[in-house]
Amino acid sequence: MTKVSIVQFPGTNCEYDTQHAFDGLGASTELVWHKSETIPSDTDLLVIAGGFSYGDYLRSGAIARFSPVMKAVEEYASKGGNILGICNGFQVLTEAGLLPGALKRNEHLHFISKYHNLKVINNDNTFLQNLNHDDIVNIPIAHHDGNYFIDADGLKELEKNDQILLKYTDASGSIKNPNGSVESIAGICNKQKNIFGLMPHPERAMELLLGSDDGVKMLQGFTKK
């Protein structure tokens, strides 16, 4: 059984949705409080869930990255453990330097909360292995600071190493950029492809009844057959 550990900071608010999503996929889940200096040793996937850790004070994710649990997260990452940062989790991972780039205020300064189409750019990784290149998924976004920035050299590196996971598009797959992100980037991974970050919320797209179940194929990438 896949073991999913979910980090909880003060202000995290998507940990129970994430837990529900992975429980539904047959994984066993455990919440890890930010003061913990260790993460469960049988962890197959560590999720840094969405929310507003530390009220997003200073910058989104800037204070959370110094929480006691982050040392264990960094150690887990360096050993090749799988980490998924969703929304605020993505911001925490960039602040911690575990993923390149940064998340800025949305270009038009609004908080955006709606479904958005995303195109799969690279599926040669654990996360998106169940999807095809150019597949379109419909996943909720809900963020104020989702405007992904990386400098020109960094972007070249991402492209060269197939680190761009998803881009914001319309339903036909043409670029449609809601927040001003460089190259319309919605999600990336590190070069070693064990650390994943995205602004959209696949854990909120697990049941058709609630609008979309496109998140199932995504998160299933992490659960054992």
Binding site: A62, T94, G101, K104
Partner: peptide, 8 residues
């Protein structure tokens, strides 16, 4: 370390 994010 904290006050600025020197990436941006």
């Amino acid at each position: 370390d904290l006050l600025a994010n020197t990436v941006i």
